[in-house]
Amino acid sequence: MERRYDARHDAVRTPPEPPAEVAHDRLWARDLRSSIRCAAVLLTTLLLIDWGAGTFTPLRGGLWAGLGVLLFLVLYPPRVSVGKGWLASRGLLRKRRVRTDLLVSVRCLDGVSQQLLLRDASGVRVEINPRVLVDNPELWHRLDEDAQKSAVSGSLTCGATALRRVSERIDRETALTVFKVSGLG
Rank of each mutant, 00 (worst) to 15 (best):
E2I: 09
R3C: 06
R4E: 14
Y5A: 06
D6E: 09
H9A: 14
H9T: 15
D10S: 10
A11N: 07
A11V: 07
V12H: 11
R13Q: 08
T14R: 07
P15K: 05
P16V: 03
P18C: 11
P19E: 11
V22G: 01
A23F: 08
L27H: 15
L32G: 05
R33T: 11
R33G: 13
S34G: 13
S34P: 00
S34H: 13
S34K: 12
C38Q: 14
C38A: 12
A40E: 12
L42A: 10
T44W: 11
L46E: 05
L46K: 00
L46C: 08
L48I: 13
I49L: 12
D50A: 14
D50W: 01
W51M: 12
G52Q: 14
G52L: 11
G54F: 06
F56Y: 08
T57L: 03
L59Y: 01
G61S: 10
A65I: 06
V69Q: 09
L70Q: 06
L71R: 02
L71W: 04
F72M: 11
L73R: 15
V74N: 04
V74A: 05
L75G: 01
P77H: 08
P78E: 12
P78A: 07
V80A: 03
V82A: 12
V82Q: 01
G83Y: 01
K84Y: 07
G85V: 06
G85P: 03
G85T: 08
W86Q: 03
L87C: 05
A88V: 11
S89W: 01
S89H: 03
R90A: 14
G91Q: 14
L92F: 10
R94A: 14
K95Q: 15
K95D: 07
R97W: 08
V98A: 04
R99N: 14
R99I: 04
T100Q: 05
T100F: 01
D101F: 02
D101A: 13
V104M: 07
S105M: 02
V106N: 01
C108E: 08
D110I: 00
S113L: 04
S113P: 03
Q114S: 08
L116S: 00
L118W: 00
A121N: 10
V124H: 07
V124E: 15
E127H: 04
I128Q: 02
V132L: 05
E138N: 08
E138G: 03
L139E: 00
W140S: 01
W140T: 00
H141N: 05
H141E: 10
R142N: 09
R142A: 05
L143V: 14
L143Q: 02
L143W: 01
D144Y: 07
A147K: 03
A147H: 00
Q148W: 05
S150N: 06
A151R: 03
S153Q: 11
S153F: 06
L156M: 09
T157L: 06
T161A: 14
T161Y: 11
T161L: 10
A162T: 04
R164D: 10
R165K: 15
V166A: 02
S167G: 12
R169K: 15
R169S: 10
R169G: 00
R169F: 01
D171W: 12
R172Q: 14
T174K: 15
A175D: 09
L176R: 07
T177V: 03
T177D: 04
V178L: 09
V178R: 11
V178C: 05
F179S: 11
K180R: 15
V181K: 09
S182H: 11
G183C: 14
G183L: 13
L184E: 15
L184W: 13
L184S: 12
